[in-house]
Amino acid sequence: MKLYTYFRSSAAYRVRIALNLKGLSHELVPVNLLKSEQQGEDYLNKNVQGLLPALETEQGVLAQSLAILEWFEDTNQGQPLLPSDPWQKAQVRNFCYAVACDIHPIDNLRVLKYLSTELGVDDEQKNTWYRHWVIEGFKKLEPMLGEGPFCFGDKPTLADICLVPQVFNALRFKVDMSAFPKISRVYEHCNTIQAFIDAAPENQPDAQ
């Protein structure tokens, strides 16, 4: 498998973590978002959406990080990242969607670029926008978590895979995490696990 990735892409980061946790053999193919390589003809021929990540498999190319993660689960590849109990599984998915659908889309690179280039928002205003929506999202996530080292249960799930990249970028934009001790605890614990460490942005071949 080939994963088309960018070192600071939250969505690609999710898939890198999952590939590592599941022990799946893969090749990383960097696509530079800052240079708009995702809009180039070669990449669009693989992923018409022009977004990252994309996973190239023997069956074809699959885009959208959550679809990729669910495909890993549906094809029983590597260790399970969803609970077997249907209710617990739904709780994990609920948490994932809160990150991937409610927080990430309004804070991703193309939105921030639009704010700067089309609406004339300066860097301070753009960063204020980012922090506001992350904080509002984290306020909803914090009560969903218990006291354990992971989001749910005693093993990493798709919830942890979605949370860690979002916290990484929150810290990069200097979000004050003092109001979110449970989120911070999960983030810190996950980053003691080699699969998470190896997937971290600073450890990628295209890290800048």
Rank of each mutant, 00 (worst) to 15 (best):
N127L: 00
K140S: 11
W129C: 01
D176E: 11
Q91G: 09
V167M: 04
C101K: 05
F152S: 06
D154I: 05
F95K: 12
L112F: 11
I103F: 01
I103E: 01
N127D: 05
V164I: 14
P86C: 07
I103W: 02
F173A: 06
I183Y: 02
A98F: 11
G148V: 15
P149T: 09
D102M: 01
V99L: 07
L81M: 15
W87Q: 11
K140L: 14
Q91N: 14
D85I: 13
K155E: 10
M177T: 02
D102C: 01
E147I: 03
V134N: 03
G137L: 03
K113M: 13
N169R: 05
G148P: 15
D122P: 05
F138A: 00
G137H: 04
L141V: 14
I161M: 00
T117Y: 10
S184C: 00
C151R: 02
A170P: 10
P80M: 02
E118Y: 00
P83T: 12
C151F: 02
P149V: 06
P86W: 06
Q125T: 13
Q88V: 08
N169I: 12
W129H: 02
N94V: 07
S116Q: 13
K89E: 12
K126A: 04
K182P: 15
D123N: 09
K174Q: 13
S184N: 05
T157A: 08
K139E: 11
I106A: 08
F180A: 00
F150P: 06
P165Q: 03
P143A: 06
T117N: 13
F173P: 09
N169W: 07
L158Q: 14
A100L: 14
T117G: 07
G148E: 14
D154S: 07
Q91M: 14
D176H: 03
G120A: 02
L81C: 08
C101D: 12
F168V: 15
L141K: 14
R172G: 10
L145S: 11
E118N: 00
K113I: 10
L119H: 03
M144E: 08
H104I: 09
K155N: 08
D102F: 02
Y114G: 07
D102N: 10
F152I: 12
A98V: 15
V186H: 08
N94F: 02
T128H: 04
E118I: 00
V164C: 07
G146M: 03
L81V: 10
M144R: 06
Q166L: 13
F168G: 12
N94R: 08
D176V: 11
R131D: 00
V111Y: 02
P86L: 04
V121T: 14
L119F: 04
A179D: 13
R93I: 14
P86N: 05
V134K: 06
K139V: 11
K113Q: 15
T157K: 10
M144I: 01
E147Q: 09
G120Y: 03
R131M: 01
L158V: 10
